[in-house]
């Protein structure tokens, strides 16, 4: 199916997934992911050229609700779930540059 997953591959996906790994964790996870992906080699050997992919079991498409006003979630209750909220908004640390 593909070449064995490397520590570089795992370091890359960890970064994409916003996870920091210690060197030991990187080694351990790489070995474990390799084992799982090796098990999946059995399906790589199947002839699936004529088979359609199935992303979901229910054939419903474009399900929309009626465009009628309803009762939304309470804003204060929603903001109360956030680690930090301010002036009716979620507050995060600086995205670019230094804090003002």
């Amino acid at each position: 199916m593909a070449e064995r997953i490397t520590t570089d591959d795992v370091a890359k996906v960890a970064h994409l997934a916003r996870l920091a790994l210690t060197p030991d964790e990187l080694e351990t996870f790489t070995g474990q992911l390799a084992e799982i992906l090796e098990h999946a080699e059995d399906i790589a050997a199947l002839d699936l050229a004529a088979v359609e992919p199935m992303a979901r079991p229910v054939p419903l498409v474009n399900v929309f609700r009626a465009d009628e006003p309803g009762e939304p979630l309470d804003r204060d209750e929603v903001l109360a779930c956030a680690p930090v909220a301010e002036d009716g908004q979620f507050r995060v640390p600086p995205v670019l540059g230094e804090a003002p």
């Binding site: 790589a44 992919p53 199935m54």
Partner: peptide, 12 residues
């Protein structure tokens, strides 16, 4: 290779 193949196996 991985996800696409797995979705086809769901059809199978």
């Amino acid at each position: 290779a991985f996800y696409g193949t797995a979705l086809k196996v769901r059809t199978l």
